[in-house]
Amino acid sequence: MPEIPLAPLDRIFHKAGAERVSEDATQALRDILEYIAFDIASKSIELARHAGRKTVTADDVKTAIRIIKCVPVPMS
């Protein structure tokens, strides 16, 4: 079950300048963002554990993003 609601993503499309957005496009963006977020979260947890902490910090997230750099997106 998806974690990110579609309505905020639709608003992002419109704020970016889209006049109309299909539901398929919004769902595709949601799926990609959830995939990327899961990857970043997993790496952030790994960094926190490596530092001997149970709490994931903003620095862990920022470091994870720098380490990951480019996240391959599944095409389904």
Rank of each mutant, 00 (worst) to 15 (best):
M1I: 09
M1G: 10
M1V: 09
P2K: 06
P2V: 07
P2A: 09
P2G: 02
E3Q: 10
E3P: 02
E3G: 03
I4C: 02
P5V: 05
P5H: 05
A7E: 11
A7N: 08
P8C: 02
P8Y: 00
D10M: 13
R11V: 01
F13G: 06
F13E: 06
F13H: 08
H14Y: 02
H14F: 00
K15W: 00
A16H: 03
G17P: 03
A18G: 04
R20N: 13
V21L: 07
V21K: 07
S22T: 15
S22C: 13
E23G: 13
E23M: 13
E23I: 13
A25E: 13
A25P: 13
T26S: 13
Q27M: 12
Q27P: 04
L29P: 06
L29Y: 02
L29G: 03
R30T: 02
D31H: 09
D31V: 05
I32K: 11
I32Q: 10
I32V: 15
I32D: 12
L33A: 12
E34R: 04
Y35K: 11
I36F: 07
I36W: 01
A37E: 01
I40T: 02
S42L: 14
S44W: 04
S44Y: 03
S44L: 01
S44F: 00
S44V: 03
I45Q: 09
I45A: 08
L47M: 00
A48F: 00
R49Y: 06
H50C: 06
A51N: 08
A51E: 11
A51G: 04
R53W: 07
K54R: 15
V56Y: 05
T57I: 00
T57E: 00
A58Q: 11
D59K: 04
D59L: 05
D60L: 07
V61C: 01
V61E: 03
A64P: 06
A64Y: 05
A64R: 05
I65H: 06
I65F: 05
R66N: 04
R66K: 06
I67W: 10
K69R: 15
K69I: 09
C70H: 15
V71F: 12
P72R: 14
P72N: 10
V73S: 11
P74N: 11
M75D: 15
M75I: 15
S76F: 13
S76D: 14
